[in-house]
């Protein structure tokens, strides 16, 4: 079992935290995980990324080269980090992302749902994690929830549980209608 996952968005969208949560969820399933991210000018505003490798084997080279899952929450990050991908890569983007006619991209209203249904756009990253895991089944839903709850601020557990569930629901609702075929 090996996954190479790239999460991207703009600074402040919680992309780094989402990556850490996913890696920690994998650790608690006794898998190996490595997470790395963009730093410095690259990480300030603009497009930022968080990459995770999850494997049942030891992980040597720690960088993602052929991601099987890519998430992009902004058009800028989509343009920068969702290019030159292997043919079978699962690409999930927010509705707001202009994919410029690309096919095979699963477009979900992640940010809008966080804003409208939870009234908290700040949990878009957790909605995205739920959606990503619903599609790619990287870790068990239980592991993911436990990992989310370990990392989020006290008092926000319910909100984040709902955010995860919302992510799973979005996939159920839009997977077929979005024209996403795999």
């Amino acid at each position: 079992m090996r996954h190479e996952i790239r999460l991207s968005g703009s600074g402040g969208q919680g992309i780094i935290l989402a990556g850490i949560v996913l890696a920690e969820a994998a650790l608690h399933e006794d898998k190996n995980a490595v997470q790395s991210q963009s730093y410095g000018p690259e990480a300030r505003g603009g497009a930022s990324k968080s990459e995770i490798i999850i494997s049942s084997e030891a992980i040597d080279y720690p960088k993602v080269t052929a991601p099987d899952i890519v998430l992009a929450l902004t058009t800028e990050s989509y343009k920068k980090y969702a290019k030159n991908l292997p043919a079978n890569t699962v690409v999930i983007v927010d509705f707001s992302v202009n994919v410029n006619g690309d096919t095979g991209v699963l477009s979900l209203p992640i940010i809008q749902a966080a804003r409208d249904e939870l009234k908290r756009p700040i949990v878009s990253n957790i909605v995205a994690l739920g959606a990503l895991n619903a599609v790619a089944k990287v870790v068990s839903p239980e592991s993911l929830e436990a990992a989310v709850l370990r990392r989020v601020p006290k008092g926000t557990e319910d909100l984040n549980r709902k955010a995860l569930a919302l992510g799973y629901q979005l996939v159920g609702k839009y997977m077929l209608t979005s024209g996403y075929i795999r």
Binding site: I20, V34, Q35
Partner: peptide, 9 residues
């Protein structure tokens, strides 16, 4: 920098 910044088990 790779070892300093990457997260792993």
């Amino acid at each position: 920098e790779v070892v300093g910044h990457m997260r792993e088990r």
